[in-house]
Computed example of a mutant assay.
Amino acid sequence: MAVDLNGAMVFARVVRLGSFTKAALELGLPNSTVSDRISDLEKALGVSLLVRTTRKLHLTDAGEMFFRKAEAAVAALVSAGEEASLFQKRPTGTLKITAPADFDFTPICEAVTEYTRKFPEVKVELLLTDRLVDLVGEGFDIAIRAGPVGDSTSTAKPLGSSGLILVANPHYLKTSPAIAHPDDLAFHKCLVISPEQNASSFTTWSLVSADGGNAKIVPQAHVSSNSVGAIKHLVSIGEGIALIPPTLVRGDISANRMVRVLPEWSTEPWPSYLMYTPHRKSSPKVREMIPLLEPRIRDVIE
């Protein structure tokens, strides 16, 4: 039985976006056309794929199975189209990049600025999020990730490793008890980063020293926040000590606005990676961005 590929593509976008209206807008089609194509697809397959209520769409069991395979097929078709378009020499379209919310966006923005000045016809979308983005399913071209990559289908290019460091405002340290060992943090105000999706992950600060020492500290959180920017600001105005990515405070340390506390201690280094699906690397829009992005991120991490 032949399956209408256009109908399958429309169905996959409706499910991914959770809305007929959003899918119609993205695809540039009238709502009625989107509805008709899915109805025709259901008739051709002889099964119901979606249950539609006034507020939400629900997949049937058959719809769930069809969606998984249809989305993979649509991604393969998009890949084939992109590879076929490699005969063009100049990047076009939209370049989608994602990185962790607490990553230093400065080198990314520098690379994007140079890129868009060189290729003004390309639109760049940058998503900073702690959520693990599905590169293929959500149509992203490049991802910057820290820690385990968790995606065997993508190419992961190592960029370097770094651990979190302890920092404070110099004035705070002058007016607070001396710190000679991580255990002394029990007598200090601690500012704790607590990501929404895993709030318990930072309830213990696990530190290692250059000479092989280990320390596990349960910080008494003076303030906790899922926003690294908020914690960094609180450090800068002297509200306490935080364990923070070094890439975000290098400038503050160089300008003496912050001081590294216990400089021989940090968390275990986590690797960072530049990731992309193999077929996207050969796309002109991705191929031209990688040499702008990679060295800048390496410099910041190292």
Rank of each mutant, 00 (worst) to 15 (best):
V235T: 13
S224K: 13
S201F: 05
H222W: 05
A230S: 12
F202C: 11
P219W: 11
H188I: 08
S224Q: 14
C190Y: 01
A210I: 06
I241E: 06
T203S: 14
N214L: 11
S236Q: 12
N226D: 07
S194W: 02
P246K: 08
I231T: 02
E239L: 15
F187R: 14
S206I: 03
G238C: 10
G213L: 07
L234H: 04
V192Y: 03
A242T: 07
P195W: 00
W205S: 11
N198T: 13
P245L: 03
A199Y: 04
S225N: 12
Q197P: 01
G238S: 07
P195D: 01
V223K: 11
P246N: 10
H222E: 10
L243V: 01
V249M: 09
I237Y: 09
G229A: 15
N214K: 13
H222G: 02
F202D: 07
V223P: 00
A186M: 07
G212L: 09
W205N: 10
A230D: 13
K216C: 08
H222Q: 06
S236K: 08
N226K: 02
K189T: 02
I241R: 07
N198S: 15
L207S: 08
F187Q: 15
L248T: 14
V235F: 05
I237D: 10
E196C: 03
S200V: 11
F202Y: 12
V208A: 02
N198F: 12
V192W: 03
A242E: 07
S209G: 12
T204G: 00
T204R: 13
K216A: 14
P195A: 04
V192F: 02
T204C: 08
C190G: 02
T247V: 05
E196K: 09
L243Q: 04
A210C: 02
N226F: 03
I193R: 01
D211F: 11
G238A: 10
E196A: 11
G240I: 08
N214Q: 11
H188L: 10
V235P: 04
I193H: 07
E196M: 06
Q220W: 02
P195K: 00
I237W: 09
V249T: 14
D211C: 13
L243H: 01
E196L: 06
V208Q: 08
V218Y: 03
L248I: 12
V249K: 10
G240P: 04
A221W: 10
C190D: 01
E239Q: 15
S236I: 02
S209R: 03
V249G: 12
I237V: 15
A230M: 14
A186W: 00
H233S: 14
K189V: 00
V235S: 12
I237Q: 12
S236H: 04
G213C: 08
S201N: 06
T203E: 14
T204P: 00
P245V: 01
S201P: 00
